[in-house]
């Protein structure tokens, strides 16, 4: 099985006009035609330009996060490279008593961790059930979810705020409140993982059931081990979402600064507070958030791509 494929030095090609079989050098050995080379060059130019545009803001962000707060300024300035590189901003974020950054970071991390576990559980339960079990009301559930999805999510927030307030899960209780809100309705986002489950042959379930497994055992022993890519995808999505959420977090934690998540906290530095003084600190905070998330994402990129393309194709 593992014999290496030899790349042939020549391809055999049927020349249709001459009606003869010829030996031709394969593509990677053939000298490209001029037209082909010109096209490829322009594609490279475009790709390089795009790469610059795509990366520049992040590079700038990093530069500015290293600008010295003490000797230069924390505001937006008219130059890019710091005159003096320093860790002032980071030091302030992590150690200064008036900085709540660590607290926000912790809040978000807690929310993200809980969501990664609970939300994944909810989403997989729903998608598995709707994909592989047949029962009365299945179509109805899917239609109801479809209709509910057409209402803007924030609409529910007004009611939920008052509900949560009754339970003490706003402001001081914002962190558990956020977890509750993210997780409770997350079952509605079953679409992509259902698409994945749909691709696993049904005969596997049937075979296992004949072999003596209950449906719960089929789920645990057969389907879950096969669903690893989509499980990772779901965890990744559930973990990443809370880092970017502004709407719900800002509303639930309204006015209670220690209970913000990073998005809300950094947002007010830039837009509400005197952002000029906090700009480089925002940059440093952004770097601290973005770096671990980006590494995580790139490491699991494969699963993300699988989930996204699968979901879009199956609609």
């Amino acid at each position: 099985m593992s014999e290496k494929k030899q790349i042939p030095e020549v391809d055999i090609v049927v020349d249709q006009e001459a009606g003869v079989i010829r030996e031709v050098k394969p593509e990677h050995l053939r000298s490209k035609s001029g037209h082909e080379r010109r096209v490829n060059t322009s594609v490279y130019v475009i790709l390089v330009l795009m790469s610059v545009i795509w990366l520049a803001p992040f590079v700038f962000l990093v530069f500015q996060s290293f600008r010295s707060y003490a000797t230069e300024s924390g505001a937006m300035v008219a130059y890019l490279l710091p005159k003096q590189w320093s860790l002032d901003n980071y030091r302030w974020l992590l150690t200064d008593p008036s900085s709540k950054f660590l607290r926000w970071y912790g809040n978000t991390l807690i929310v993200a961790a809980f969501c990664a576990v609970l939300q994944t559980f909810m989403v997989l339960s729903v998608s598995y059930t709707l994909s592989r079990l047949r029962f009365r009301g299945r179509k109805l559930i899917m239609n109801v979810v479809l209709v509910l999805g057409m209402f803007p999510g924030f609409l529910t927030m007004i009611t939920l705020y008052f509900l949560l307030k009754q339970l003490g899960l706003t402001q001081q209780g914002a962190v558990p409140g956020m977890i509750l809100i993210y997780v409770a309705s997350s079952g509605m986002g079953y679409y992509i993982s259902k698409g994945f489950f749909d691709t696993i042959p049904k005969s596997l379930d049937e075979s296992a059931r004949i072999d003596g497994a209950t449906r719960a055992q089929v789920f645990r022993m057969i389907i879950m081990p096969l669903a690893k890519p989509i499980v990772i995808y779901t965890i990744l999505m559930a973990f990443m979402a809370p880092w970017g959420d502004y709407v719900f977090a800002s509303y639930i934690a309204f006015g209670s600064e220690p209970n913000y998540n990073v998005a809300v906290g950094l947002y007010q530095w830039v837009n509400v507070a005197d952002y000029q003084g906090f700009f480089t600190r925002f940059c440093a905070g952004g770097v601290l958030v973005a770096v671990p998330i980006t590494i995580l994402f790139l490491a699991l990129q494969k699963y993300y791509v699988e989930g996204v393309t699968g979901g879009a194709v199956k609609g």
Partner: peptide, 22 residues
Amino acid sequence: WRTILVMTIAIPQFVSLLYVSK
């Protein structure tokens, strides 16, 4: 090329969008 482009998905939007807005 793909990995470079995917950076905008990886980095939380509030970081990238707030920064670009500024």
